[in-house]
């Protein structure tokens, strides 16, 4: 095995690793800094998903094995599909339970207390 492709893969994996871990860190920072549940959810569902997804991709790429890469891609796809669903469910449940938006909010057009508690 020559050194060229090896080095290229290492650089690509490193870029993915650094980007993914920075996204994860910023998502956690956003979780701490945003004022209410709904804004925090933005940080967790976007930056968090991308962060973990990039790290998974890095692991798949590092193996240099098509089966492992496909598995990592499947994991990434699964992650991207489930993150919005869980964010949506949590936001909906919190809003219906009556948790308020932050005072910075300018508008809330979602009607409250729709009495459909067992449909989720």
């Amino acid at each position: 095995m020559s050194a060229g492709p090896d080095l290229l893969v290492a650089i690509a994996v490193s870029v993915l690793l650094v980007a993914g871990s920075i996204f994860s860190l910023l998502a956690a920072l956003g979780l701490l800094r945003f004022p209410d549940l709904y804004t925090r959810m933005h940080a967790a569902s976007k930056a968090g998903t991308i962060g973990s997804g990039l790290l998974l991709l890095a692991a798949g790429l590092h193996a240099l094995d098509i089966a492992i890469l496909l598995r990592a891609l499947a994991g990434f796809a699964f992650f991207v599909l489930t993150a919005p669903v869980s964010a949506h469910l949590l936001a909906k449940a919190a809003h219906q339970a009556g948790y308020k938006l932050t005072n910075l909010s300018v508008t809330d057009q979602l009607p409250l207390a729709k009495q459909k508690s067992d449909r989720l």
Partner: peptide, 19 residues
Amino acid sequence: LGLDMLVAIAIGFIAVIAI
């Protein structure tokens, strides 16, 4: 939400450990 994020970071952690 924090626990959800914790799991997401743990997944990233495991991926790094795999490498």
